[in-house]
């Protein structure tokens, strides 16, 4: 990953799931606990500690210009860290980031929410998929500042919603992952599809996931899991791949 160097101590952050982690660990109840702990710990180690934020008005839709004389509708930020307020999984988060920070990096490095994966960092694999106002986007090609004023939903947040949860359960049931690196992005993409189109065909699922690359080739299981989560397939369907 060639993103910006952000002020954090990576040894303090919860470690990424990676290859060794089991499906139960990744998607089951345990994760919520780990993520929450990491979340608090992460918040403690960022440069945006509470002391730094005191008195600073976080950059939100209503925030005032940071500096300089500018006409109406023009605000200038950076190049150094600025306080930014994001709505992540229904909660308000204030972080202190440079404008060059991508949304993926802000989540992973500043908020210790490592459920969102970064693989290509170029918009070419969709591993970093999350929802902005329910629309799936690539968080590696989105500046965190561009998420201000929008509702961001990550894989961690999906666990708490009922549609998200049933999608994750279907992925587990169909064993729709091997290394798991594409999985959070796949789950985000497929649950966004069901929000837009609750009764998709397999072709709809294929089209929706057309940008999500899986090097392990778990596609047939992903399609079957999504169709089952939508209640449009025989839950006993077999996989021939």
């Amino acid at each position: 990953m060639s993103g910006p160097k952000l002020p954090h101590d990576s040894s303090d952050l919860p470690q990424d799931s990676g290859v060794a982690q089991t499906a139960e660990n990744k998607l089951g109840k345990g994760t919520t606990g780990i993520t929450r702990r990491g979340f608090l710990k992460g918040a403690g180690v960022t440069a945006a500690g509470t002391a730094l934020l005191e008195g600073a008005r976080a950059f939100g839709r209503e925030a005032a210009a940071t500096r300089g004389e500018h006409p109406e509708g023009v605000r200038e930020f950076g190049p150094g860290p600025v306080a930014v307020t994001l709505q992540v999984n229904g909660k308000e988060r204030v972080i202190h980031i440079e404008p060059r920070t991508t949304l993926a990096d802000a989540l992973r490095l500043e908020m210790a929410m490592t459920g969102t994966k970064v693989v290509c960092d170029r918009g070419a694999c969709s591993a970093c998929t999350l929802l902005m106002d329910d629309i799936p986007i690539n968080s590696c090609m989105t500046l965190a500042i561009d998420a201000v004023g929008h509702q961001v939903t990550t894989i961690e947040g999906l666990t708490e919603s009922s549609e998200g949860h049933s999608m994750q359960a279907a992925f587990l049931k169909h064993d729709a992952m091997q290394c798991g690196f594409c999985t959070p992005g796949m789950v985000m993409t497929c649950s966004a599809l069901l929000k837009k189109n609750p009764k998709p065909t397999e072709d709809d699922v294929r089209l929706a996931t057309a940008g999500n690359l899986c090097r392990c080739g778990t596609y047939p299981r992903i399609f079957a899991a999504t169709l089952e989560a939508a209640g449009v397939s025989d839950s006993e369907s077999t996989h021939n791949a």
Partner: peptide, 8 residues
């Protein structure tokens, strides 16, 4: 990526 000023 280099640092920059973002004018929104």
């Amino acid at each position: 990526m280099n640092q920059f000023v973002l004018v929104d």
